[in-house]
Structure formats: C-alpha cells, structure tokens
Design a protein around this nucleic acid. Structure first.
Lengths: 313, 313
DNA sequence: TCAACTATTTGTCCAAGACAATATGACGAG
DNA sequence: CTCGTCATATTGTCTTGGACAAATAGTTGA
C-alpha cells in the first residue's frame, strides 16, 4: 500500500490525478514517456507528484480529446494554443429553438436554478413530454455538454443542471408509474457509465407511449442484467451510453451482453456514446438518435414476437 | 489499443474483469503471481482471458473481503469453504425492529416492490423523517448490503431497492425545498463514489432540521467542489462514502480537499466508508454514524463561526 | 471524387521488483 | 486477565521498459 504521505505542498499522487482527470495511470505514464508531458516531481520514494497546474492542464487536454483532438498534437501546444482550441466555435447550431436554448444555457451558467426550474415546467406543460424531451431537453443536454467541453462552464454547473432535470423527471414520473403496457423494457447502463439522465428520458418517453419501463439505475454487471431480464420478463433491454464512454468498451460490453441474453430478448443501445460505433453488432439495435427509439418500438410491435409475448400473458 | 478480439467463448479480458468485480488490474495480476489464483487462459497475444467461473469466484472473494476477510486466507479455501463463510451469520442484530427489518428484506428478495413502496410511505408518515431515516432506512440499507455480501441477493435486487428509495426521497423532498436555513451544506461525493442514497438521506435530515442543503449529486472533482462551495457560499461540505470506496483513497481525497478548501468552510465525511479510517484527519469531521451528523450540526450552531456567518448575510 | 492501401499514432497489456501502510501475533506490565 | 507496545507478515499500489493491435491519418491509384 504505497502511501502518498503528505500530498500537501508538492502535489497530487498519480491515483488522485486518475480520479480527478479520468485518465488512467497507464496513460499518464506513457504520455510522460512519449511526449515528455507531464513531467511530475517525485517524492522521497520516487513516486510521481503532479502539481495542480499540471492537473488542470491534463483536464483541459482530456476535454479537448473528447471533442476529437489527438493528444500528440495537443502536447506540442502551449497554454495559448490550448485556449484558442477551447474557444473555437463548432459549426453553427441549426436548431429553430436556438435562441431560447442559448437563453437557458445562460441560466445554467449563472446558477439561476429557480428560473430554470420554472421554465422546464412551463415547456413541459406546453409541448407535452415527447416533444419536450426531443426538442428541449436532449438539445439542451447536448449544448451543456458542448459548453462544458469548451470550458464555458464547469462540472459544478453541469451537476446542478443534471440534478434539477432529475428532480423534474422523477417527480413527473412518480405520478405516472404504469402497471401494465408493452413492450416491457429494462433500463440500465453498463458498469462505468454513471449517467442516469438518458435512462430517465427514455423512461419518460416509454411511459407516454404506453410501454412498461423497468428502471434499474446505472451500472449493472452484465450477468445481473441477464438475470433481471429473466425475472422481470422483459421484452427488451435498453442501455444508455454517454460521450464519455469509450466506444471500444461499449461495443465489447454489448457483444458480451448479447451473447448471454436469450435470443428472443431484444437489445437496444442509445445515447451519444453509440454514435462512434461504426460496425453494426449482430442482434443489437443501435439508436444514436431519439427517433430511433420509436423505430425500435414500432418494429417490436409489428413483429410476430410482440404478439406472442402478448398472447403468453 | 489492445483488443480482446472475440471475448466470446474463451472468457473475459482483464479490463472486463476489473469492471465486473471492482478489483484493479494490478491486484488481479499480483494475486496470480502470489497465490496462483486465478490463473486465466491466454489469447494468441498472451493476454489474460478469465473464465466466467473465475470471475464469479473473484466477485465472491471481493464480497468476503468487504466483510473483513483477508485474501491470503480466502485463496486457500475451496468452493465449499467459501460458501460456508458466505452463509456464516454475523453477530445477532440487536435492533428492536429486527423482525420487521427481516420482513422488508424479504420483500426486496422477492421483488415485491409495490408492497415495499407502500410500507415506506406508511412508516415515513408514522415516524417522521428523522426517525424514519435512522431507524428504518439506514438499518435496512445496511441489512441489504450485508445480504448482498452474503450472496443472498444480487446487484439486481439492490438496484431495484435503491431506485425505489431514491424515488421516495426525491418526491418527498420536492415539496420541501427550502429557500433559507442554516448552515448551508454542499452535498456531493468524490469521483469514483457513485452512491447517491447517502446524500439523499442527509439532505432529508438537513431539511427537517431547518438547514439548507445544496445537492450536487455524485462524483465531483475536488477543484469543482471548492468552486461550488465558494459560489454557493456554503458553511460546510459534506461527502458520503460507501463501503465499496477504498479507505486509503477516501483519506487521500479528504486530505486533498481539505488542503484546497477555505479554512472557515467545514468538511464533513459520512457513510460506512469512513468507519475503517483510523487516524483522524486534521480539519475533517468524520461521521461514521448518523448521530454524528447532528453533533456536527449542533457544534456548528454553537460555534462563533455560525453566528458570524449569520451576521454576514 | 472516392476507394484501397500504407504509415503513424495511441491506449492498454505484460513482467518482475519494491515499498509502506495495515493487520496479525507475541510479549511484558499493571 | 486486560491492555498497550513492539516485531512480523500481509497486501495493494507504484515503479520501469517493452510490446502489440485498433483506430486514425496520409498517400496512392482509378
């Protein structure tokens, strides 16, 4: 049990940096070897001690990598260069609700949570759940994520925003819990994917579509997903992946799960995290866009399997 | 990017095992070197491929270690020995509500979520929030965790149980959100600790105690915690740690945070995860029991700092 | 302009050694 | 017999340097 003794003063040990930045110890060490950055101090025991400045820069690099930049290029840049990339505008947002979206984003940035909460309730009542999720919530989440990756707002604002959305969905859904409906869909994520908002959005859409969602929360090991699917007798398992989730791990997890799941249980995978998956996976329905969920739903309902499941009850 | 190619058939690569069991790659390799278990197959590239049987056994060992057993002893045991430990009863539960607790645990095991939900609402109305949390929820969570560690129920049941509790707290708290109150307490966890229930329980207790909780959700990097504490002008930061969180990492994180937080902002750490921390950390209030939260609260209110904070507003 | 091929980049895995924090066990004193 | 102190054993994490395959970028040819 190596101890970082007093982390005070000099800097943070490699385990803390992994926790703070999300970069694995292996990656941190191989970067140091290849690019010469970061080159942390060493404590008396020869163990790495990263300065807060280095950690901040690593977090910045991680954000830019999530936006598609490659580490080899980023390492050659100085602070000004990184900042320039940070502020580089992406392509213009083509949404019709663009202006309103920007207004709301500003509420998030200024921590005006009361106004945000009011606006959410108003728009939900105005548009109905389906349009609210597709036209407002999903784009706003994307916009917040984008703003975060551009360092216009921090994890703090993003967390506060998520908490308010979660409160909204949970209070709204509490009064709509269905006792019936088809198909029955198990909602969860694989271990490592902790984002719950995607599941809540799907749950809301399924409820108003007269399906029967079973919300299991995030991070379920695959063998437990299989067991849950059997016990709850669901027709489909729906997983959610955010951008942070490594596409390779997602594909691997989906293959692992598909192999263990009964053949007549469908497997759906949604969220921005499935977009980078090029190759289709056999027996898995990839749903990068929300519209695809309705396609999956319609396909299930038009299939003979759907009827059989109905007959069995 | 080492690829597990087809994980199908032979077994799971080491990254998948780390995800499923929560044991680090380093630990898995050093166990193989020291104890000769597990000795996974190798693929064409010489990389480890663990069989499902090995993974199950590793998960079992992990559970027993969380209950205090040491790996060196566990490795020498065969399957029967592990099973015997699994079923070994811990010391008799001294709670007066023992029988009722067992009844509820049974509802969890049998997935009778409707009955559980009804029982929760009844007990909350009967006892009031403070007693409900301390006498019912906290012991039941502990009991569920214990049952899980004894393999009497799985992640699936535990997730379902957590989701229902979360729904209960969030709907109840939605109607009680305070606009004022002291002290102002920021609620979150460090990166790596995804358990939210502890935060919700603390939020509920703080609300009925006329304090002002700011729920940030789980997994906030320490520099963002510091920023949130400043912007929200909180008097204290309260972190929650579950049993799964490594005590060494928890202590390290608390030291890191204490160093960066303003001296006049208190730092509280609660949950079962802080119990194994022997050495007190300077400037950090460890609250292994719920009662300790009230002590911290009372201490803050009796301190001159509390008054000063009031005067400043 | 687009497809196919080659080259580079990059994250993860492996091995064996080392060390310090914790837990265990032995000892002696009150 | 109980408690605190010290030595010993256990155990997780960190170290170095090498290797490889997947993904991406760059180049060539139709």
């Amino acid at each position: 049990m190596t101890s970082p003794s007093v982390s005070s003063g000099p800097g943070l040990p490699i385990a803390s940096v992994e926790r703070e930045t999300g970069l694995s110890k292996d990656t941190l060490r191989v970067w140091e070897r290849r690019y010469g950055f970061p080159t942390p101090e060493r404590d008396v025991n020869g163990e790495r001690l990263y300065t807060p400045t280095q950690v901040r820069r690593l977090a910045q690099i991680k954000r830019l990598m999530d936006r598609g930049h490659r580490p080899g290029k980023l390492m050659t840049l100085d602070e000004a260069g990184l900042l320039a990339l940070d502020q580089a505008r992406s392509s213009a947002w083509p949404s019709p609700d663009d202006q309103q979206l920007e207004h709301w984003l500003n509420l998030v940035k200024t921590h005006d949570t009361e106004a945000l909460q009011r606006a959410f309730h108003r728009e939900l009542a105005k548009r109905g759940m389906t349009r609210f999720v597709q036209d407002i919530v999903a784009p706003l989440i994307a916009r917040v994520g984008e703003a975060w990756s551009r360092n216009e707002l921090g994890v703090f604002e993003e967390h506060l925003f998520s908490q308010h959305l979660e409160k909204l969905f949970r209070t709204t859904l509490a009064n709509m819990t269905p006792q019936t409906g088809h198909p029955r869909v198990l909602l969860t994520t694989l271990s490592g994917e902790e984002h719950t908002l995607g599941l809540l959005m799907v749950e809301a859409l399924l409820v108003v579509e007269d399906a029967y969602p079973v919300l299991l929360g995030p991070q379920t090991p695959i063998d437990e997903i299989v067991r849950a699917a059997q016990i709850k007798a669901v027709d489909a398992v729906c997983l959610s992946f955010s951008t942070a989730y490594s596409p390779a791990l997602a594909a691997q997890g989906l293959r692992d799960l598909r192999q263990m799941l009964p053949a007549d249980t469908q497997l759906w995978a949604g969220g921005y995290g499935v977009k980078p998956i090029r190759k289709a996976i056999d027996g898995v329905c990839l749903m990068p866009e929300f519209q695809d969920l309705f396609d999956c739903l319609a396909r299930w309902r038009s299939e003979p399997g759907g009827k059989t499941a109905d007959d069995l009850k």
